[in-house]
Each structure stands twice: as structure tokens, then as C-alpha cells.
């Protein structure tokens, strides 16, 4: 991420998941698009509330699976038929049923690696720095027992004072300005 100056966004802290979801849903309805919620465990309802319904991890996994299976099956065929044909008990060189086992394993291997690393890549991880960790209450509590809603400064509706007042309307435990 390029170094920037100024405000990243405003961070509202909530004590319960219900409060966060209600606030996030309302903010989305009011036209906010650059916003995100943070929770210490998977909170599907909050993702729904900010309009995040689908992700590309399954597609990446499917592509990985097909590449893995096809790669291993072709490799086996090429080795056994062309590169190094061996007569094993008179079996045909292209004995495909035997090739299925490694191809099956590689399908799973590549699919699994695509699912795992694809998820990390789509999430923009690993990330060595993120401005949210500058908020003192975020660090330490977001990964334990607090729920956060962040309205980001990149949203055209963002205005430091007005947005702060808007977030106060949700009665959060606190509202913090987050610097880059």
C-alpha cells in the first residue's frame, strides 16, 4: 500500500454482534459503499449487511482442481507412453485406470492449495501494515470480544464531523478517527 496522509476512516466500536449488524445494515441503506465490519469470529450476517454476498474462492478452487488433475494425468501418460515405456506384466503402456490415483490426488492437492492461497490473495494478505491497527481500541479487542464498523474516508459521503455525528447515532461504545 502506498504511504498516504490523513484520515483512513472513522471506526465505531460495538459490544454485541447485533448492534454491529444493525448499524452496518443502516449505513449500507443510507448509501455508504466504502465501509467494512470487523469481528472476532465469522459473522455472516454482517457481510450480508454490507452487501458482500459472493466471493471468487470457489471459482479459483475449480480452476486449480482442473489444472492439477489434467497436469498429473498428462504427465503420467507422457512418461508411460512416450518418455519411458515399460512393460509391466504385459499391461498396455497407456494403462489409464492406474493413472487415476495420482491424478485424483493432484486434483485435490491443487484445489486445496488454490482454495487456501486464493483466499489469502483475494483478502490482500499477507499485509505487513494496515492503518486500522493505529486505533488503540481496535488492536487487542477486535480479535477478542469487540465488533467494529469502519466508514472509510474514500467514500464520497465522508465528512469528518458529519460522519462522526452519524456514527454516534448508532450509540456505539466509542468512535475513533483512524489515521493512515
Amino acid at each position: 500500500m502506498p504511504p498516504r496522509e490523513g484520515t483512513y476512516g472513522l471506526l465505531a466500536e460495538f459490544d454485541t454482534p447485533g448492534d454491529l449488524i444493525r448499524a452496518a445494515r443502516k449505513a449500507r441503506q443510507d448509501g455508504w459503499r466504502r465501509l467494512d465490519c470487523y469481528s472476532p469470529y465469522p459473522l455472516e450476517e454482517a457481510a450480508e449487511a454490507i452487501g458482500f454476498h459472493r466471493n471468487k474462492v470457489p471459482l479459483l478452487t475449480l480452476i486449480g482442481a482442473m489444472i492439477g488433475g489434467a497436469a498429473m494425468f498428462s504427465l503420467e501418460t507422457w512418461i508411460s507412453v512416450l518418455a519411458f515405456p515399460l512393460n509391466i506384466g504385459g499391461r498396455p503402456t497407456y494403462s489409464w485406470p492406474a493413472f487415476l490415483v495420482p491424478a485424483y490426488e493432484w486434483t485435490i492437492l491443487w484445489a486445496g492449495l488454490s482454495a487456501a492461497y486464493g483466499m489469502l490473495a483475494l483478502n490482500g494478505l499477507p499485509a505487513l501494515y494496515h492503518p486500522l491497527f493505529n486505533a488503540p481500541n481496535f488492536r487487542g479487542r477486535a480479535s477478542m470480544d469487540k465488533f467494529f464498523l469502519c466508514l472509510e474516508a474514500l467514500d464520497p459521503k465522508f465528512d469528518l464531523q458529519a460522519t462522526k455525528a452519524y456514527l454516534e447515532g448508532f450509540q456505539p461504545a466509542s468512535v475513533t478517527e483512524v489515521e493512515y
Binding site: D36, C37, P42, E44, A46, A47, H130
Partner: peptide, 10 residues
């Protein structure tokens, strides 16, 4: 750098 964004969680 995991930060618990609900998009990430999804």
C-alpha cells in the same frame, strides 16, 4: 496481518 474484516471472514 489478519484483521477480522467480515469480507475476509466470508
Amino acid at each position: 496481518g489478519w484483521r477480522g474484516s467480515v469480507r475476509h471472514w466470508a
